[in-house]
Design a binder for these strands. Structure first.
Length: 226
DNA sequence: GCATTAACCACAG
DNA sequence: CTGTGGTTAATGC
């Protein structure tokens, strides 16, 4: 098995940039790189979480099986750490992660990762920042999910893909309508209807999964008003 | 009451 | 997997 050479990795995390050559060497010796295709399950809910997972490139959805139905907690774009809450928080994974695009993941040995946190404060600090941002995002999506109307939540989702994921007003949705429903806490039917409404109102251009946002201002209004 | 919103169901591409 | 239509329950004016 080939060693991974983290030192020369172009896709290091902000945290990993704080590591010195020696530490990177240790990291490389204790991690495995795996490639996933769209639809592949990267981590499965309830399985043992023995590794830290770092998404080097690609796009991943994080979803939890709820009492009634599936819920998509977040869509994560590389580069990002994936399983810190699961790895540090409990023995098992509290959520599943599924690849939406071709995705490369580095699985890092937990003890190695832990040692880096003990040894390198700058590294640990960057991880803290990462986790805190995730926490803040969760708060925001929680309140938006609880208080907005479906139309606002769908507008949110479109703006999220446009601004946060693709940085473009035109993009191809990486998820199905069902997924969009699971993301926004509505149903696939509602998503379907709202999307065609947006299209008819000339807010967006819609062709299957191809979306082009024509009136971002109004879409933001809808997102804000809920 | 009446209108709106959205979930649920069913059926057709 | 999607889109659409009918039905129904909840909520607001």
């Amino acid at each position: 098995m080939n060693n991974i050479h983290c030192k020369f990795c172009e896709l290091k995390s902000t945290a990993a940039k704080e590591l010195n050559d020696c530490e990177l060497e240790v990291l490389g010796e204790n991690c495995a790189e795996v490639k996933f295709k769209p639809g592949d399950i990267i981590v499965k809910q309830d399985s043992f979480s023995t590794n830290v997972a770092y998404i080097k490139n690609g796009l991943v959805k994080i979803h939890i099986k709820g009492p009634i139905k599936e819920m998509i907690m977040r869509i994560v774009k590389a580069p990002a750490y994936l399983c810190l809450p699961s790895t540090f928080g409990d023995k098992t994974n509290h959520f599943s992660a599924t690849a939406l695009e071709n995705t490369t993941v580095c699985f890092i040995d937990f003890d190695t990762f832990k040692n880096l946190i003990y040894a390198n404060g700058d590294f640990a600090y960057q991880i803290m920042i990462d986790l805190s941002r995730g926490q803040l995002q969760s708060f925001h999506s929680c309140i938006s999910n609880a208080q907005k109307h479906s139309i606002g939540k769908v507008a949110d989702a479109l703006l999220f893909f446009s601004e946060d994921i693709y940085q473009s007003s035109s993009f191809v949705l990486p998820v199905s309508r069902q997924d969009l429903g699971d993301m926004t806490g509505t149903t696939r039917e509602s998503v379907s209807r709202i999307l065609t409404d947006f299209h008819n109102e000339k807010l967006i251009e819609l062709d299957g999964k191809k979306v082009s946002i024509k009136n971002p201002e109004l879409l933001k209004q809808i997102s804000l008003k809920g």
